[in-house]
């Protein structure tokens, strides 16, 4: 059996995720299957549709495999959101990747039952990239920040900022037109939208847990997966789960320092808020967590248990990693 699978995602072909995770992963799968399982990647929504449709495309077989953010369809995946709560996840991508993947094994089967999840993970710390210096909550007051996910928006609001929602490609234009004062993304995304050219200040939160991360899923159409010959399925299985999660951390853990160095070379300032300030932020964002717990209850979920397990897994995989 020789199979070619279509992998669909919304990032451009020059993006770090495409170059440093999806391509190497597809090549590894091809190599280990003696080129019998080929994965053809279609970046930039080439196969049609809009980013929020990607998950359905995997479910319905429009694409065989998709890469997307569960957060692109707010409200649809309530459990995995726990890692996007303020001050839950780790600074380093590798920790979040392994923690979320393990969490997915036990807690997210129901949530992703419509597809075959190949890997579920999250990126490393996100920073506040802004035209103004942000050293304290007072500096955040009224700052118009493009936020990446629903819960991060709530966290920024709790900190006094004015979160603005818009698709990532709109960010450069909106920044130059003063529609926003900055954006909250990890370093890895910065060069793709030339953020380093448009803002001068990058605010980092010291240590773990960190203010915010976003989660990702690499999902495959169920029928397609079950229809694979056993030996091909074995190759795919060997490159799923924790094995894939380790590869998935690369775009962030290896690219983040490169991008940060580039921003510093331009003369941009990287600000690390003090531990005392971080404690204030954690205190101020507690209502976001409580609100999420209440919403979970309404949906019939045990949010407290999910949160406890998420924190435990981050601690377990983060042991010994700074």
């Amino acid at each position: 059996q020789e199979v070619t699978l279509r992998l669909h995602h919304f990032l451009p072909a020059v993006s770090n995720v495409h170059r440093f995770f999806l391509q190497p992963w597809a090549q590894k799968v091809a190599k280990e299957s003696d080129n019998r399982l080929r994965i053809q990647i279609f970046p930039a929504m080439q196969l049609g549709g809009a980013p929020p449709q990607l998950f359905d495309q995997a479910r319905d077989g429009v694409a065989d495999i998709i890469w997307t953010l569960p957060g692109n369809t707010p409200g649809r995946f309530p459990r995995i959101e726990v890692f996007e709560l303020p001050f839950v996840s780790h600074k380093r991508a590798i920790v979040n990747c392994l923690a979320i993947q393990e969490f997915a094994q036990s807690q997210l089967r129901e949530e992703f039952r419509e597809v075959h999840p190949l890997c579920v993970w999250g990126h490393g710390e996100g920073l506040i990239h802004a035209k103004r210096e942000v050293r304290s909550m007072e500096d955040l007051r009224g700052l118009k920040l493009r936020f990446p996910s629903r819960l991060n928006g709530e966290a920024l609001r709790a900190l006094g900022a004015a979160p603005v929602g818009m698709p990532v490609p709109q960010v450069p234009e909106a920044l130059s037109q003063g529609v926003i004062d900055g954006a909250v993304v990890p370093w890895e995304v910065v060069p793709s939208i030339r953020l380093q050219e448009m803002v001068k200040y990058h605010t980092e939160i010291p240590g773990s847990p960190t203010l915010y991360i976003a989660t990702f899923i690499l999902a495959m159409n169920r029928t397609k997966y079950e229809g694979l010959a056993p030996e091909l399925r074995a190759v795919l299985d060997a490159n799923s789960g924790a094995a894939a999660a380790r590869m998935a951390a690369v775009p962030w853990d290896e690219r983040n320092p490169v991008v940060e160095a580039e921003a510093r070379r331009r003369g941009n300032q990287v600000i690390v808020i003090t531990e005392a300030e971080k404690a204030r932020w954690m205190e101020a964002t507690k209502p976001v967590v409580e609100n999420w717990l209440a919403q979970s209850r309404e949906r019939g979920l045990d949010g407290a248990a999910l949160l406890e397990q998420a924190r435990a897994l981050v601690a377990k995989h983060g042991a010994g990693i700074g």
Binding site: T73, P74, G75, R76, G153
Partner: peptide, 15 residues
Amino acid sequence: ETLASGTTTMVLGLP
């Protein structure tokens, strides 16, 4: 299907 999946908008949470 959109109703069944409970998808909302990002900022206002509108269905």
